[in-house]
Write a protein that binds this DNA or RNA. Structure first.
Lengths: 228, 228
DNA sequence: GCCATGGTTCGCCTCACGACGAAGCATGGA
DNA sequence: TCCATGCTTCGTCGTGAGGCGAACCATGGC
């Protein structure tokens, strides 16, 4: 009899070891807001090669810290659940400085939930609302392969500056529902989602926050959104 | 710009790395109940040599996960604060099984708080109460070097089967206050604390729990305690 | 069917970490 | 003063984890 609490210890070391590597920690903290990110995106964020990232993601997957969803040729990784996020936060809270950062963190998380970019298109509460309004107003109609643009939609998108012909020409799915991981409902992804987001940014509907992927809906954007 | 959240990441990896090693995890979980344990005790619990344990403890100290108190030739290590305990618990909660164990853990922690052994003497609520009663009843009186036994004390200790002469002959401090890390008040340590605890166990005041260091105060013990 | 792109697998290298024994300090008791 | 004990420091060794490039699958668009 050498060690007590054997079972607990094993669990702790397994999870802790997965979080102990800088590369994996960068990946995990990037996923902290609940989004799902593609493997390549995570590799870029962590600053490692695709091969290295793949190995790390496989280990995180094996340790049940993340789950993966295949979507086309992408694999979207996401934290398994709030326990993982919770553990990451409690670890970050240890050492030098105390509670100050946690307030900032909570505020930042809230901002990210309100509106953010998901890779290159709008997500968060605002993203989900936008898709709701576009579909509800028959601007977009569900199609076999995502969404198609209705008559009213063509007019509105043109007004917003979206070049539909160019969007259709992109080497990319046209308009697809993308599951929003904080709202658990879809927002608009695909080439159209990206182009529309770009135009809305240009027209001042949103402003970039401190985190770069965090967005805030401006007054102008709010009135534009309700007018849809 | 490669990695976001740089500061957080660093903190996470540092703390996580310290918890990721099985030896350190064993030490940390042994300290989870808030006690302070001597370096040698931790080495034994983790199943490593004194040299190895020393190196690990130095790292834990450096990472601010534990603090140390020198007491004679012993060095008592203890978790820095509840954040550390919290992080350990949240890590243990990840992976395979969900909440079931946490209930068991909470129960066990409560049992340990009520009564336990601190190396070889009584600690926890019962340990603190015992010292309170012994001092309150003038069985023990404070001395320069801890406690001395009063007239009434000699009689009572004899009744309980404590061989005072033998205790005084031990190569060890006679009777000292030992800070109880869950109650934050002293219980009785030293040779007398150990001998008295041994006698009380023999007389059935306490029964060993599942964790071996956990004790439960029996009815017999309860009446004996109040009669002091 | 062909190419471009996103991910994974494979093989190799490096280096940091953990383990131990022996030796070195400190403390406390006789 | 001397010894026993508790813990740390030092030197050495072995293993394992992380990093990369190249080659290998899978998917989607033309």
């Amino acid at each position: 009899m050498v060690v007590e609490h054997v079972a607990s210890d094993a669990d702790i070391t397994q999870a802790a070891a997965l979080m102990a590597d800088p590369t994996r920690a960068a990946m995990l903290t990037s996923l902290l807001d609940g989004r799902a990110l593609a493997a390549g995106e995570l590799a870029r964020l962590a600053g490692v090669s695709a091969a290295t990232a793949s190995a790390h993601l496989a280990r995180l997957l094996d340790g049940c810290l993340v789950t993966v969803v295949r979507q086309g040729r992408h694999r979207y990784y996401r934290l398994t659940g709030h326990e993982v996020a919770h553990a990451l936060e409690s670890l970050a809270r240890i050492s030098p400085r105390p509670a100050v950062r946690s307030l900032k963190g909570a505020r930042q998380a809230r901002l990210l939930r309100e509106a953010r970019t998901c890779y290159d298109h709008l997500a968060g509460q605002a993203g989900v609302e936008l898709l709701d309004r576009l579909v509800g107003g028959k601007c977009l109609v569900e199609a076999a392969d995502g969404y198609e643009v209705g008559e009213k939609g063509e007019r509105i998108l043109a007004e917003l500056g979206v070049d539909l012909a160019a969007v259709r020409g992109a080497r990319r799915r046209f308009a697809i529902p993308c599951l929003d991981w904080t709202e658990r409902r879809p927002h608009l992804g695909g080439a159209l989602g990206a182009a529309l987001t770009e135009r809305l940014m240009e027209r001042g509907w949103f402003e970039r926050g401190t985190t770069r992927r965090a967005l805030t809906l401006t007054e102008h954007g709010r009135s534009g959104m309700t007018a849809l």
